[in-house]
Amino acid sequence: MRYSDVMKKIVIAATAILFSSTAFAEHTGVPTKGERVFRKCRSCHEVGEGAKYKVGPALNNLMGQQVGVLSGDKASKALRRAGELGMVWDLKTLEVFLRKPKALIPKTKMSFAGLKKHEDRANIIAYFSNLGAGEEAVKRDPRLSDEILALKGDVEYGEYLASGCTTCHQLDGSDQGLPSIIGWPTSIFATAMHAYKNKDRENPVMQQQAGALDNDEIAALAAFFSGVTK
């Protein structure tokens, strides 16, 4: 698959919007707050067990999905085309799309003006990321201090450490048997890793991996993976 001129334009537009959004650098959304923001979407979208296509698709596994895939046959031409050109729902595309859907995909059928507040967007993205974690949804652990979650990770170190993850989790976000871990907000990623480290989450392979990492190393991984796009 190649980037065409259309995709380049979309990327340029998205990049321009991203850089104008100064608050975007902090991906510190809170899933529970995002759940409240999601009320605005419920007339058209369902989530959770048994969620079905309503006016728009069920959004259970949104993060890391190719644009248009969740809508299946019902995807608009515009959405399907963007997906075919390689666009994926991740931190960056969702931040732009949720701010003003038609700014990213002008011919989308989604008639929603957008979420004007950065905070709402960050929270709902955190909520969507959390949905991807299924039953093991990321809950805020009271033992995790704001300082630990706000640690700014060394991306270069994160890239090296990430090579320990990519033996199983694929960098292109495909999830054949194991979840995609790219494009997660850093706070969600770090919370999930600390939950494995503290053995609150059960998978022994992940407990092993997370157990070998200190707070800075988890922050480094979170910083690296949050920046990986398809």
Binding site: T167, D175, Q176, G177, L178, V205
Partner: peptide
């Protein structure tokens, strides 16, 4: 078992 299939896909891509 399903995890091992995910790992197989992951390591061969790696």
């Amino acid at each position: 078992y399903e995890e091992s299939v995910g790992w197989y896909n992951g390591i061969t891509a790696d």
